[in-house]
Design a protein around this nucleic acid. Structure first.
Length: 510
RNA sequence: GGCCCGUUCGUCUAGGGGUUAGGACGCGUCCCUUUCACGGACGAAACACGAGUUCGAUUCUCGUACGGGCUACCA
């Protein structure tokens, strides 16, 4: 057991887009697997046919790919020795039924024939009686219709009549269940808190509780890493392993802390979030709602993943910006926190900025060019890269390049009013006329030369540079802020620069 | 309500019986600078509360409060 090969799985159900909570779970599985040279498996838990969402599975696969956390085995990533990896397909082999039957045979599970109306009635009854925890359990099952409360003949008859039934786990009334969690240590729960979980549904499909255990065993999973929301059902899972005689072989458990909303409360949710919660944009075919993804919002996957990793985990060395390789080598569950982490969108932007700064101008241009084209221009690559060079220090997200550098493509049609009010007058006009002429005559349109000429002309006219720089910027770009002024002029080029200056001179009233 | 899990600056966190409780984001001031930004310097900012153990608790124990999760023939 100790020397067992590390095999972990990410096992989402295809009920919608994979959001950041899921990505984080997948990431920790991935990091752990890579750290130990093990396998990372994608298993699709599609046992609930009523919640199947078209496109969800494909989304999950694409999201993992974009994030750079690719399983080496599983749906969409190639079969390993334990295919198939969709539970709906695994069912065909009768594997879940087999394990359920084994539990029936050993007396640890039973048939239950109750309708949903009967179950509702039972809960209402218990609530009315002020029972603290209304549930189908050792006490209440005596009053329900199942193979424990009913006579053998009656059960036989119901089965022969094909009366719908489920198989439930027979949870003992009062027994201490202890289990070890790698992150939380020992957890103790009394079985009285655990209900008789449905193992096999009336449609023949297993529930999560049965299916994940069967598959984890069959797929030789060494560690079950999942979100904290599973902690309450872990005792039931322990029981299932135990009754199956598999307790020795069960995966080690690690329950990850949840990612919480930044302000309000609760675990992260797509509904009210004012920031992306999905890695890729996701459109829900059921209600045609759609959500912007990190990718589409201008984030780099490395930055996104870096942030996800640091939500609940830290390497213990004050290092924050880390490559995947570094994270892998530093990762351990011992350094995973127990407490939930509130997500900070601002810090996520900062992380993206860190990665953005490291990109070459050419790499930046690759994402910038589509933005430019979307606005109807067809720049050459070199020019786009130059704009990126001038503008990148102001950008947090790659989709900010256009708002930051649009004036390299579009000549201003209006000018910052505050600057005009303050700096535009007859004196300034006369200066800029001279400057325009001087620059027109310049044979060298380099920014250093432009600056020299500008200051020369200013000195000759008894004007301090501070008085005209801002106005010059506005004449060239229309706005008061932007990249280095003379570099801007140089990149604009002589023809365009002069044109814009002349245009401003003729447009602005004195 | 019941059960489970948790609680260090606003946020992510390091630390851990004796520390000036460290870092990062954000925020503020200053420097650099034609602007914005980048960069740099500095600063404000935390051990939820109450008992107990101890020479000494932020650190260990127990309670309380608060937060989160679960409470389906959903995962």
């Amino acid at each position: 057991m100790e020397n067992q090969r590390v095999r972990v799985r990410f096992a989402p159900s295809p009920t919608g887009g994979l959001h950041m909570g899921g990505v984080r779970t997948a990431l920790f599985n991935y990091l752990f697997a890579k750290k130990h040279g093990g396998d990372f498996i994608l298993r699709i838990e599609d046992t609930d046919q009523t919640r199947f969402v078209e496109g969800a599975e494909e989304y999950i696969i694409n999201a993992l790919k974009w994030c750079g956390i690719e399983p080496n085995e599983g749906v969409g990533f190639g079969d390993g020795p334990y295919a198939p990896y969709r539970q709906s397909e695994r069912k065909a082999s009768g594997i879940y039924q087999k394990y359920a039957d084994q539990l029936i045979a050993s007396g640890h599970a039973y048939y239950a024939f109750d309708s949903s109306e009967e179950l509702d009635a039972m809960r209402k009854r218990l609530e009315a009686a002020k029972v603290a925890a209304p549930q189908y359990n050792a006490v209440t099952r005596q009053n329900m219709r199942n193979s424990i409360s009913l006579s053998e003949d009656e059960v036989k008859r119901l089965m022969e009549e094909k009366h719908p039934y489920v198989i439930r786990l027979k949870v003992p009334r009062n027994e201490e269940i202890r289990f070890h969690d790698i992150i939380r240590g020992w957890v103790v729960v009394n079985s009285g808190q655990v209900d008789d979980k449905v193992l096999l549904k009336s449609d023949g499909m297993p529930t999560y509780h049965l299916a994940h255990i069967v598959d984890d065993i069959e797929m030789k999973i060494s560690h079950a890493v999942r979100g904290e929301e599973w902690l309450p059902s872990a005792p039931a899972h322990i029981l299932i392993y135990r009754y199956l005689g598999l307790e020795e072989k069960m995966p080690k458990l690690a329950h990850l802390p949840l990612i919480l909303n930044p302000d309000g409360h609760g675990k992260i949710s797509k509904r009210e979030a004012r920031f992306p919660v999905f890695p890729l944009s996701w459109s829900d075919p059921r209600d045609s709602s759609s959500y912007l993804g990190y990718k589409e919002a201008g984030y780099y996957p490395e930055a996104f993943i870096n942030v996800m990793a640091l939500l609940g985990w830290n390497p213990g060395n004050n290092q924050e910006v880390m490559s995947m390789e570094e994270m892998i080598s530093l990762f351990s569950f011992e350094r995973v926190n127990k407490a939930g982490a509130k997500f900070d969108p601002e810090k996520t932007k900062w992380f993206n900025q860190q990665y953005l700064k490291k990109k070459s101008d050419e790499e930046l241009a690759e994402v910038f060019i589509p933005q430019i084209e979307k606005n109807g221009f067809h720049p050459d690559k070199k020019f786009a890269a130059e704009v990126c060079r001038l503008v990148k220090e102001k950008a947090h997200l790659s989709d900010e390049f256009w708002p930051l550098g649009y004036f390299f493509f579009i000549a201003p049609d209006k000018y910052d009013e505050q600057v005009v009010a303050k700096r535009w007058n007859a004196n300034a006009k006369s200066y800029f006329e001279k400057l325009t002429e001087a620059w027109s005559n310049a044979t060298n349109f380099s920014h250093t030369n432009l600056e020299a000429i500008c200051k020369e002309v200013a000195a000759a006219n008894n004007i301090k540079p501070g008085e005209i720089m801002q106005m010059l910027r506005v004449m060239l770009t229309g706005v008061a802020g932007g990249p280095a002024l003379f570099e801007t002029a140089q990149l604009l080029g002589k023809e365009e620069t002069i044109k814009r200056m002349e245009s401003a001179l003729s447009t602005l009233p004195v």
